[in-house]
Design a binder for these strands. Structure first.
Lengths: 186, 186
DNA sequence: CCACGATACGGAGACACTCTCCGCTTAGCA
DNA sequence: TGCTAAGCGGAGAGTGTCTCCGTATCGTGG
């Protein structure tokens, strides 16, 4: 028998509740509270998700998928090198700051092969790779900074945007700085 | 009577021990352990430093002072706009990553007027202000990004350098990107 | 030099969170 | 319907934070 129906139900419910609780209280909220609100025992939560990161990983799945989609959309637009870069940056920041504290978590894990959320990082850096790969083909960006490092730079901006609750128009100049630094001089 | 000698002694000892423990174990090390190693009761520690951040603040005092010195030194050097900027960035990153986790702490607090370590942030952004002020006088940098935002950008790089334990030569390209983005196009 | 208040100390203990262990329950097959 | 593996729950051990208050010490004024 593959997976028991009640187990699947509990798992889904825990993820759903955790997403809600983490949004309310940040990623260091009590896991016992999550269990309680989900109507399961602590043991059940820890069996499904042995560590906090395992739970975070499950939560992040959905919006990492959205980054892939959004990247397709940005790449489909015909626009200048700089616009392409800045637009993708904005998309990236917007998506990884959807959950408070998420930007810091993902950015710190970026490039760490042992991180429990490395698969999420790989999706993100893969998306970055597609964008700067496109620009590299056009000869528009410096080549000594790879996709992971781009994610780190933009993630750094996203992290401060998140923790300082900066508005989009305060973030834009920072993203322009990164974009201009990345583009080769005309 | 101003301050009792034993109280001062204990306070100093706690800071000294905390610096050591935090370097070993990170900024979330047990405070009871700090108290024990310092040979004082928990009550004594919490009376002197009501919160963890108050203790961190005290620890950071010495190396924030070093940023001021280092900035003087960098500004005294005659060099190109870009070199000035990159060198100061390197100094900044080096100093705020002296203590593991420090970069993230200071960068997240940057620009937050309610932060318990805001005075430290102000020293740092003040130093950044002197550097970009100098460059602004020369008309070399964009003017829509202020000192605090520069600290955020470089702090973002420092944070990832710290958490990913990047070597100086891996950090340099990232700092060049920020520098080039900040400098106005020739 | 001593006595006496103000000041500071210490650590027991209340509270909160994490994570494990194991007896009990239940889903799902035959 | 009965059996068994899979899953459940929650008590409790371990650890960390922070407070409270009886006790000890400092430093001064007599």
């Amino acid at each position: 028998m593959p997976v028991r129906a009640d187990a699947q139900r509990n798992r889904d419910r825990i993820v759903e509740v955790a997403r809600e609780v983490f949004r309310e209280q940040g990623y260091d909220a009590s896991l016992d509270l999550v269990a309680k609100r989900a109507g399961v025992g602590a043991g059940t939560l820890y069996r499904h998700f042995p560590t906090r990161d395992a739970l975070v990983d499950a939560i992040m799945q959905s919006w990492v998928d959205r980054v892939t989609e959004a990247t397709d959309k940005v790449l489909a637009n015909e626009c200048s090198d700089r616009d392409l870069l800045v637009r993708w940056f904005e998309t990236y920041v917007e998506l990884i700051t959807l959950h408070k504290g998420g930007a810091a978590k993902i950015t710190c894990a970026m490039g760490d092969d042992d991180s429990p959320i490395r698969t999420k990082c790989q999706v993100l850096s893969g998306a970055a790779g597609r964008v700067i790969g496109e620009l590299a083909d056009r000869g528009a960006v410096r080549t000594d900074v790879d996709a992971v490092q781009v994610c780190r730079l933009v993630g750094g901006v996203a992290t401060v945007a998140d923790t300082s609750e900066l508005r989009a128009d305060a973030v834009r100049p920072l993203l322009e700085v990164v974009a201009d630094g990345l583009l080769v001089r005309a």
